[in-house]
Amino acid sequence: MKVLILCTGNSCRSQMAHGFLQSFDQNIEVFSAGTEASGKLNAKAVQVMQEIGIDISGHTSDSVQKYLNDEWDYVITVCGGANESCPAFSGKVKHRLHIGFDDPSHAQGSDEFIMSEFHRVRDEIKDGFYKFYLENIKQA
Rank of each mutant, 00 (worst) to 15 (best):
4 L>H: 11
58 G>D: 08
8 T>H: 05
9 G>D: 10
54 I>C: 08
35 T>I: 12
29 E>D: 15
33 A>R: 07
29 E>S: 14
44 K>Y: 12
28 I>V: 13
49 M>L: 11
44 K>V: 08
48 V>T: 10
11 S>P: 01
78 V>D: 06
3 V>S: 05
58 G>T: 10
49 M>D: 02
19 G>W: 02
29 E>G: 06
34 G>I: 03
29 E>I: 14
43 A>I: 11
7 C>M: 07
31 F>E: 15
24 F>M: 10
52 I>W: 03
57 S>Q: 07
22 Q>E: 15
50 Q>P: 00
16 M>P: 03
59 H>S: 10
34 G>F: 05
64 V>I: 14
63 S>F: 00
68 L>W: 04
42 N>Q: 02
58 G>K: 14
31 F>G: 00
77 T>V: 15
76 I>P: 08
51 E>T: 04
28 I>S: 01
35 T>A: 12
22 Q>V: 01
12 C>S: 07
20 F>E: 01
41 L>G: 10
13 R>F: 08
66 K>E: 11
65 Q>S: 14
13 R>Q: 10
65 Q>N: 14
39 G>K: 03
6 L>T: 02
63 S>G: 15
33 A>I: 03
54 I>T: 05
26 Q>N: 13
51 E>M: 02
47 Q>T: 06
57 S>F: 06
46 V>Y: 07
13 R>A: 09
59 H>R: 01
80 G>V: 02
61 S>M: 06
67 Y>H: 03
39 G>E: 05
36 E>T: 09
74 Y>M: 05
69 N>G: 11
54 I>P: 06
41 L>F: 11
64 V>M: 12
30 V>E: 09
8 T>M: 07
59 H>T: 01
23 S>I: 02
3 V>P: 04
9 G>I: 00
40 K>T: 13
46 V>A: 12
13 R>D: 09
80 G>S: 10
31 F>N: 14
70 D>T: 00
24 F>T: 01
40 K>Q: 13
82 A>W: 05
69 N>W: 02
69 N>P: 00
67 Y>V: 02
31 F>Q: 14
38 S>F: 12
33 A>C: 07
23 S>D: 10
56 I>Y: 08
51 E>N: 11
49 M>V: 11
57 S>P: 04
15 Q>N: 05
15 Q>R: 07
50 Q>T: 12
23 S>R: 02
50 Q>G: 06
15 Q>K: 14
42 N>V: 05
39 G>A: 05
81 G>V: 03
44 K>R: 15
2 K>S: 14
12 C>I: 06
40 K>C: 05
12 C>A: 15
83 N>M: 12
29 E>P: 00
58 G>C: 04
5 I>D: 10
56 I>S: 08
29 E>R: 06
52 I>C: 12
24 F>L: 12
34 G>H: 07
76 I>T: 10
26 Q>R: 13
71 E>C: 06
37 A>N: 04
67 Y>P: 05
65 Q>A: 15
11 S>I: 04
18 H>P: 01
32 S>A: 09
83 N>G: 15
13 R>Y: 09
67 Y>G: 02
25 D>L: 00
20 F>P: 00
21 L>G: 03
83 N>P: 00
68 L>E: 13
69 N>S: 14
8 T>Y: 00
27 N>Y: 06
9 G>W: 04
81 G>P: 00
35 T>R: 06
